[in-house]
């Protein structure tokens, strides 16, 4: 059984689907957590503390990192396969087929944008929070405590270019999810003509929810900062 997950096309797709599903669930969790920051910065910091260098948080982080890694690795392998399967001679003329979503044909590119965003995000946050704790530090480069997530958010989104980068990142994620979410049902075989509209609707809802949830924090903190500066 282990081998079909590495050898067969449908097996590899199953890995994409399951790891993708796991990442979607994580993102939904992360988003809900972030929303706390709007309502109560102190509450948010409590969660941050909870997710510091504790064994369970570290284990979670490791699993999460593995999930991301597997998702990316398989994406690369599959894309390489697909590129070869297309043959050396490409079409001179191609058009977008009717009913085919742009995102579905550009998942890898979108994935790279998401990945780049993730890298920036890790530098912005994770390296200044869990990593600091892990290395035994009590204060990060910016002078905040590693569990003071709210301060970090406020600091990051006080800069307009960070706001822009995050919004672009979230937009790419939106596109990635509109295809990815219904697609994971298709790949495991839980789809049919009746359910396609429903699944695609679900995908759009999830993607939009994720976008709005994350963007809300970014925008609210940016707005707060603007207000403070103005005032």
């Amino acid at each position: 059984m282990s081998c079909f997950l590495c050898n067969s096309s449908v097996g590899k797709k199953l890995v994409m689907s399951v790891s993708g599903c796991f990442l979607v669930l994580f993102i939904l969790f992360h988003m809900s957590m972030n929303l706390t920051a709007i309502i109560s910065p102190a509450g948010y910091n409590t969660i941050c503390e909870f997710l510091g260098a504790n064994w369970y948080a570290l284990a979670g982080t490791a699993v999460l990192a593995a999930g991301v890694l597997v998702h990316i690795l398989y994406a690369l392998v599959l894309t390489l396969n697909n590129y070869r399967a297309r043959g050396s001679q490409r079409y001179a003329v191609t058009v977008q087929e009717p009913g085919v979503a742009w995102s579905s044909k550009n998942m890898l590119v979108l994935g790279f944008v998401v990945l780049a965003g993730l890298a920036i995000h890790l530098i912005h946050f994770w390296s200044k929070m869990q990593l600091v704790e892990l290395l035994g530090g009590h204060v990060n480069a910016l002078g905040f405590g590693p569990a003071d997530g709210a301060a970090l958010i406020a600091h990051t989104f006080s800069k307009w270019y960070n706001v822009l980068i995050y919004l672009v990142w979230l937009a790419a994620l939106w596109f990635h999810l509109t295809h990815g979410v219904w697609s994971m049902f298709q790949t495991v075989g839980w789809a049919n003509d009746t359910w396609y509209p429903r699944l695609k609707c679900l995908a759009n809802v999830v993607a939009t929810l994720v976008f709005l949830g994350f963007a809300a924090v970014v925008v609210v903190y940016f707005a707060k900062n603007c207000c403070c500066t103005c005032c």
Binding site: V10, K13, N82, R86, P98, G99, H179
Partner: peptide, 11 residues
């Protein structure tokens, strides 16, 4: 290649 669910085939 592998199916990435674009739906181009069906179209």
């Amino acid at each position: 290649g592998n199916c990435t669910n674009t739906g181009a085939c069906q179209a």
